[in-house]
């Protein structure tokens, strides 16, 4: 590898930029989660259902993230895969108060995990059991069981309960994810 490439790479390391994909059923709270990560003055006061997708950028302690906030409505879910190729991490948001639709969420998750662009990669996945403030909400352990996460062994994953409106629990989750991504980037750097 020539000098120029090395230089560029170390510059890239300094920045540690990564793309993440935010998916989950409609109304799960994906856009609300991302809205929370934005600087206070840039947040929108009302989040509307996403049509297609949206890009959001924000910084965590260890990496800069570009998040693709996908629409969760049934007729747009097939569009997720267009963005699988170049993501380094996934956030899967679940509305933990909607027990009935957990089945649907599991189904979508399984389809995604079987996708040829996802299946062979050790992509870190952060599960957010959102809307924990609601009375109907079930615990993150139950969500994990409902999604069958015990069988997900070939990828690093983490689940955390959260409230996207207040931001409770979000930081724990995103810290885990950005650490995973940072580690992966650093490990790749060592390999070279």
């Amino acid at each position: 590898m020539g000098l120029f490439d090395k230089l560029a790479f170390s510059l890239g390391l300094k920045k540690r930029e990564a793309n993440i994909l935010v998916v989950g059923l409609d109304n799960a709270g994906k856009s609300t989660v991302l809205n929370h990560f934005k600087p206070e003055d840039q947040r929108t006061s009302d989040v509307v259902p996403t049509v297609g997708y949206n890009v959001e950028k924000f910084k965590t302690k260890s990496v800069g993230l570009t998040a693709f906030d996908m629409s969760g409505q049934a007729r747009y879910r097939n569009l997720w895969e267009a963005y699988y190729q170049d993501c380094q991490g996934i956030i899967f948001v679940v509305d933990s108060s909607e027990r009935l639709r957990l089945v649907v969420a599991k189904e979508e998750l399984d389809i995604m995990l079987e996708h040829p662009l996802i299946k062979p990669r050790r992509l870190p996945i952060l599960f957010l059991a959102n809307k924990m403030d609601l009375r109907d909400a079930i615990s993150s352990v139950k969500v994990s069981a409902a999604l069958g996460l015990d069988r997900l062994t070939d990828k690093p994953w983490h689940i955390t309960a959260c409230n996207a409106v207040t931001g409770d629990g979000l930081h724990e989750g995103i810290d885990w994810l950005s650490q995973m991504i940072k580690d992966a980037v650093d490990k790749n750097a060592q390999k070279l």
Binding site: V51, Y53, N54, S71, Y76, A82
Partner: peptide, 12 residues
């Protein structure tokens, strides 16, 4: 096809 994918980005 599926050009609606950019709807939210454009409204933003």
């Amino acid at each position: 096809e599926d050009t609606i994918i950019v709807t939210s980005s454009l409204t933003k």
